[in-house]
Structures are given as C-alpha cells and as structure tokens.
Amino acid sequence: MIQQLVIILAIGIVVMCSLLLILTCYVVIQRLINKRARLLINNYITKHADDWYDYLINEIDNEDLIKPAYAQDFAAIEEILGKYKKNVTSNRLSLRISMFANDYMSHYYCKRLHHSRWSIRLNAIYRVLDFQIDSLTSTVIEMMDSGRKYTDQEYFHMLKIVVNFQPEKAKEIFMRPPIKLGEFEYRQLLLLLHAETKDKLLLLFDNLPEPCQYALIKVIAEKNDRNKITFLEELIADKDKEMRIRALKAISVLGTISDVNRYLPIMDSKHWEERLMLAKILNYIPVEQSSQPLKRLMQDREWWVRYQAAKSLVNSARGKLILKEFIKETDDLYAKEMANNVIQESL
C-alpha cells in the first residue's frame, strides 16, 4: 500500500515538474513575444509622434498617415490617445480624439466589448467613455439588455456610458438602478451629468435612493454650486441625522449662508457632529455675529467642537483678540487650554 503511494506520488511529482518546466518555456517565449510587440508599438509611436501632434493639436486632417494598419497599431494609438487625454485638458482635443476613435477604432473596441476575457471587455468599456466613442452606445445598451451575465463592475461602467451619451435615461437609472449602487457609484454617475439634468434630479430628491441623495449633496459641494444653498438649508432640519450632517458639511464647504439665525439652534443639538459643522460654518460669517456662539462652542463637552470653534475664531485678527479675552474671562480650564493651544498653533 505504502509502496504504491510512493510510486503514485513520485509519478505525480515528475508530472508536475514536467508541466512546470513546460510552463517555464511558455513564460520565456511569452516574454520574448511581448518584447517584440512592445518594440512594434514603440516604433509606431516614434514614427507617428509628430503626425499625431498635428492631428490633435494643430488640427490637421492627416488621418491617412496615422490610421491603424496592423494589429499592434491599435495598442499604440490607444497609448497615444490615453496620454493626450491625461495630460491635456481641452474640449477641442477631446472632440478630435472622439472623431478619430469613432471613425477608426470603433470596430476594434466593438470586438473587444464582446471578448470572452473579463479584463479586456472592461478595458474596452473604459475606452468607450474615455475616447467618447458614442457610436458604440447602442452596442453597450444591447449588451446590457442581452441577458448575458456581466459583473457588477462591468455593468456599472456600462451605465456610465449610457448616462453620459443618453442623459435622458439618467432619471430612470438614478431612481431604479438595474444593479445595486452605493454612494461612490452614484457620485461618479452624477459627475457625468450636465447642470440641467442634475437640476431635474434635484426636483425628485425625495424619491431618490438614499445613497443617491447623499451623493447629490456631496457633488453640490464639490462643484461649488452656491445656487443650491437654499436647498441645502432646508435639509438641515431634516429628520435624518446623517442627512442633516451631510447638508451642514456641504454648506461648510460652500462657505455661504442665507441667515445665521437659522443655524443657531444647532448649538443645542445632541449630536456633536452637527455642532462641529456649525463651528466650521460660523468661520464664514462676520466675527461680530459669530463670536458669541463660538465662545459658547468653545466650552462644548466634545474636544473636536472646542477645537473647531477656537480655530474658527483664530482665523481673523479680531477673532484672535476675542479668543485672548476669552482666555482671561473663562473659568473653564479645558476651554482655556484649547484656546491657548490654538493661538500657539496659529503663530
């Protein structure tokens, strides 16, 4: 019995070693092939660098010189377009890239969109959006409707293509997404939308899924959209604590408010995060109005609120004086120490 096991194991080891040696040969050959392919790609890039500059920057219509002729040309062109896209921000350049990609690369990407390998399909989906190949939108929609099983990651990036090229479908996608979307995904989709489409979504705010609502608030702050301040101020009285904190945070980023009195009740909030945001927002209003509430927040039971209140005061010369007076007057040792530290830190 043991003897048989020894023989089986020895044969197994020999077979494994042989397979591994074959794999070693494969890896070595593959490296040589990759080296050769890289050389061809580099040759194309070197040969056509000036032609591409003429096409994309000088807007000379020299497509005949640069259009892909061999398989590796596609990879080389993808690299060139990717680099221009990454390093130059210009609508004209994006348009030229889109024109070329639609005319000469769409067939290549269409084939890759249907590739059996997940990573190649996903790369192709990325390129459709990167190079604005709108002629492939219908292919992408067909893929989504085909019933074939795609990963959530693929599906999400396909949704980005649809939202980007067919914004009229955005409302439906945001309200009833075909896959589960989190705040991170909604935020990416929202960043693809034009202001008008976003405004329309804002009208439907209450009907949107919660992660989408949070993402929308974040995007308003990121885009520095101060016209939405009234909308945000309505949310600071929302019954959901998370919504209130997020709205306050967005307001603190925008740095503008309509009426300070609307905010003062937050001083008595039982949630320190709200009081912290209030201390941040008070930084943006004249010190005459903010000094009293900030002095009160200096004595808050939460360290972060005291710290932020002191920081908001110390930002202006007048505030610094108020802080120094406060140090003399107060009996609160914690507040006194914090005020002293923040003044030292600001020096």
């Binding site: 194991l9 197994g12 080891i13 070693c17 794999l23 070693t24």
Partner: peptide, 20 residues
Amino acid sequence: LLFILYGSIFSFTSVIFEAW
C-alpha cells in the same frame, strides 16, 4: 516526497506563476 512536493515543488510553482 511529500516534503519535496510541499517545499520545493510548491515554491517552484509559486515562482513560475508569479513570473507568468
């Protein structure tokens, strides 16, 4: 043989798969 499989062959496999 099991030690060789577990020690050397698995290490060889890791090396070659990493290289791949």
